[in-house]
Every structure is written in C-alpha cells, then in structure tokens.
Design a protein around this nucleic acid. Structure first.
Lengths: 106, 106
DNA sequence: TTCGTAGTACGATCTTCATCGAACTACTCG
DNA sequence: CGAGTAGTTCGATGAAGATCGTACTACGAA
C-alpha cells in the first residue's frame, strides 16, 4: 500500500458557474439520479458505485457534464474517483434551488 | 368591442408536473429569459411583448414547452395570449427552486 | 365581410447531445 | 515487471430539439 494521492479534477470556480448550465445539467434523468445519490452521501461516492442503467462511458460523460457545470466536485483516491455535491457553492449562488430540486417526489 | 372571452390553454395538473421537465425547460437561455420576464410581471404578459431575439414561431415553441412542463399558464384575452408563472404550484412542489433560479446573476 | 393583428402549427434544417464500444490511462497488488 | 481494476476518451450513431419560413386560425375593428 503506497501513499494515497488526492488530486482534484478541473472544475469551474464559484464565480464561473452559470445557472443555465446547472439547470440543463440537472434536467437530465440520469444526471438527476446521480445528484440524488450524491445528496444521500455527503462524504462522496465513487462513480461506479452509483446504481445506474448505463455503461461506464455514459456514466463518465454525465459526471463530466455535472462537474463542468459546477454541480459536483471530483477528486482521485487511488484508482477511484470520488464525487460529491458542491452544496456550499450552489446554496450560495442559488439559495433554495438544490433543496427544491431534491424535495421533488421521484 | 365585444364580450371578452378568457380561455385557459391546456396544461398539466400540479400532480402531473415532473421535476426533470421543469429543469430542462428552465435550462434553455431563451426560456429562462421568458421566465425572468414573467417573474417581473405577476399580472402576466403577452407573448409578443417579451423582448427576445427570436421569431414569433420560436417564441411560440418555447412558450409551449414551458406550459407543457408546468412552468407557466396561458389564457386568451381576445387575440392575445397572456402567460404568467405558476408560482404557487412550483413553490408547493419544489420550495425554493424558483427563488434560487431567479436570484442568479444574469 | 374584409382587413389587420396576435399567435400557432407544420415541415425542413441544422445543431446538440445521450448512448455505446473500443482503445486507452492510471493506479494497485503480487 | 505483469495482471487486474477504475475510469476516461474518442468516434460513430441515432434521437431530441432550437430555429426558421410559410401557411394557417382566431379575434377585433371598420
């Protein structure tokens, strides 16, 4: 077992986040499912552990979309990539949005 | 001047509104612009009076999308169609969502 | 009824994007 | 090192959708 290197994947600064991109990212069923899963696990979750009906490459595509929109942050932990919601940033930018979305009946 | 007939255009019941449809509807720049305009005029506004850089037919397309998603309601007033935000329904379903979206810097 | 206005519906076009398989990178373990 | 695992990237494909012009409907005014 070696030293665990944690590296954060590129993502927009809080000031660069655009509401259109966030809404568009959240408006896709698979991505909304990912967001809901992340909301349930504040400590973060590995890509492959989220239950989804899509292939790994589609998974990666959606995670990238969410990351580039500023919805989630991802860091590496060995070979795994742990993602978690950018709740603080989103709440600061759009207070109530995330709560409202997550309160929706599934 | 004859009798003014007010007829409401078909729209989903509150229980039929799906959050994915709402988010997807809000995630398009022109439609978000429409929603912002509606938020500024609670009494409702006619389609043609919203300042947009698109043709009438594109306007109609976006208004239909927003109506079918449950974001706005439209009724006729003579030849004009007045639209307004379904704020009560949206606040009840997703408390905070609309506020959060509208609080975003433009 | 005829004209003008507000807005919609339809069909076409062009772009965006969700999806996948295959090839690839990065890391861990033995 | 080599094998295995986690995940990404690339290119292709097919579907969804944003846009427009044209033709149409509905209503009001003269």
């Amino acid at each position: 077992m070696g030293l665990m290197i944690r590296k954060q994947l590129p993502q927009p600064d809080r000031a660069e986040i655009r509401v259109e991109a966030v809404l568009q990212a959240l408006g896709e069923p698979v991505r909304l499912q990912i967001v809901r899963a992340l909301a349930d696990t504040p400590e973060g979750i590995a890509c492959g552990e989220i239950e989804l009906q899509v292939t790994p490459s589609t998974r990666a595509h959606h995670l990238r979309t969410l990351r580039e929109a500023g919805v989630l942050t991802t860091h590496t932990e060995g070979t795994r990539r742990i993602s978690s919601l950018r709740r603080e940033d989103l709440d600061a930018l759009y207070p109530g949005l995330l709560t409202g979305v997550l309160s929706a009946a599934q």
